[in-house]
Every structure is written in C-alpha cells, then in structure tokens.
C-alpha cells in the first residue's frame, strides 16, 4: 500500500514550512529525506502521519518532551497499544513482539530503568524498539540516529534495511548523514525551503551543493560506493 502524498502545505503563521509537497511513496522501499536545518523535513513527516496514518504508519519523533515516568519495558509495550481493547492487556503475541524488539535494539539491560533516566542515545534505541514492535507496514523515523554512536547507528540502519528486504516494510527516514543516506536508501529526497527539489537514487555533488550551499567532494571508497565530504 503506497502513501500518495498530494499538495501538502503546512504554514506556521505566514511562513510556509511545507509548500505544496507532492510525492507518491511506493511500498517496499527505504526513502531518506535530506535537507538543511529548517527546510521542513520534520514538518513533512509529521504532516504525513497527521493526514495519512490509519494504523498503517509507525512513527518515531525526533525527541521526547516532558517526563514520561515509565520503565523502558513499559515504554516499548506502548507500541502494542490497541485503542479498541478497553480492558485487555497484552497477549502472548504482543509480549513476544515486545521482547523481540527489545532484544534487536539491544536494550535488554535497560528494561527496568526509568525512561527519563536514560541517555539521549539510549532513549532513541527505546523509541526505535517501541516502533519496531508495532505491526504497521510503514515506518517513519525522524532523525533516528542523531544521538547514537557509530555502532548503534549501524545497528538501527541495518535493521531498517533488513526489515525492508526481508519483511517488505517501507520506510521514510529523515537523516543528516549524507553517506548513511547513500548507503541505506533506495531513494533520496532532497528538500529545501519546504519544497521537494529532487528525488534521486544516485546523488551527485551538484545536488548537494544546490540544497546545502556548501561545496562537496566525492571520492570512491574501498567498497566502490561514493563517499561525500564537505569542503
């Protein structure tokens, strides 16, 4: 099931954060959204969730605000919440999915800690686990690796790739790291000033310069893939 976004516009006051965005996200792919700060990436994914989520999209926000006051285990269990079940708790399938998500994100040891006492990166892993135990075919992640170390960035992006390749899940991910985007995305969306500038599966230095206003150089890494760095 694809998400066909049509003419999405979001304004904050007189400023258009998202300006007439249209794009057909087809299923079974990893889309990565790249763009400078304030170009409307987060606004885009929030608006998509707002408008198109009907139990088919799992979403992880950029950050968690306020006191959550739940243990990590209880926090991840929220991913199995079903508003139609007023009284029932979690059944054995739910428990299995929660436990699987906890173990793939390697947060077993944090299970009984309070979410609020975790470090930024640990919180992000718990947030990802909560989202991975949902059943939704679409998963939207807003900067899932912004506080993660190299090892856990690899972990989460490898899980994304695996879920896409093996379970045919579809992803829309906002990322800052250009080379992570190149390595893991099927398609890269370049955004600037609330507009979709280009969609591509083969990024060039000109593309990057046009949206980031910075000179880039590309070298070929040992594995043969392109590697970009800013001058």
């Amino acid at each position: 099931m694809s998400i066909d976004v049509k003419n999405l516009t979001v304004s904050y006051g007189s400023k258009k954060a998202l300006d007439d965005f249209s794009f057909d996200f087809t299923e079974g792919k990893v889309y990565v959204v790249l763009g400078p700060n304030g170009c409307g990436k987060s606004t885009l994914v929030k608006a998509i969730v707002d408008k198109y989520a009907k139990g088919n999209i799992a979403y992880v926000a950029q950050e968690t605000l306020g006191i959550i006051n739940l243990t990590v285990r209880e926090y991840v269990e929220l991913g199995r919440y079903n508003p139609k079940k007023f009284f029932g708790g979690l059944n054995s399938v739910d428990v299995k999915k929660v436990e699987d998500a906890i173990s793939i994100m390697q947060i077993n040891e944090l299970e009984d800690r309070l979410f609020d006492t975790l470090s930024g990166g640990e919180k992000q892993r718990a947030m990802a686990a909560r989202c991975f135990c949902q059943d939704a075919p679409w998963i939207i992640l807003d900067e899932p690796s912004s506080s993660l170390d190299v090892k856990h960035t690899r972990l989460i992006l490898n899980i994304v790739r695996d879920l896409c390749d093996k379970e045919n899940k579809s992803f829309i991910i906002v990322l800052h790291d250009i080379n992570d985007a190149v390595k893991y995305a099927d398609k890269i969306l370049l955004m600037k000033d609330g507009k979709l500038i280009k969609e591509t599966d083969c990024l060039t230095t000109e593309d990057l310069t046009s949206i980031f206003d910075t000179q880039f150089k590309c070298i070929n890494s040992d594995e043969g893939s392109a590697y970009f760095y800013a001058l």
């Binding site: 969730v49 926000a61 968690t64 306020g66 739940l70 508003p83 949902q134």
Partner: peptide, 22 residues
C-alpha cells in the same frame, strides 16, 4: 480508569499517538 491508558500514549506526542490510533 477506562481512558487512562491513553494518558501513556499521549505522553509520546500528538503524531505518535495518531500513529497508534489515539
């Protein structure tokens, strides 16, 4: 008591709550 579990869901923020059907 009936609607209380939604308090936990709302802590995740508006969009995440929407994605969970709340």
């Amino acid at each position: 008591f009936i609607f209380a579990p939604r308090i936990d869901i709302l802590k995740l923020g508006k969009e995440t709550a929407t994605s969970l059907g709340v």
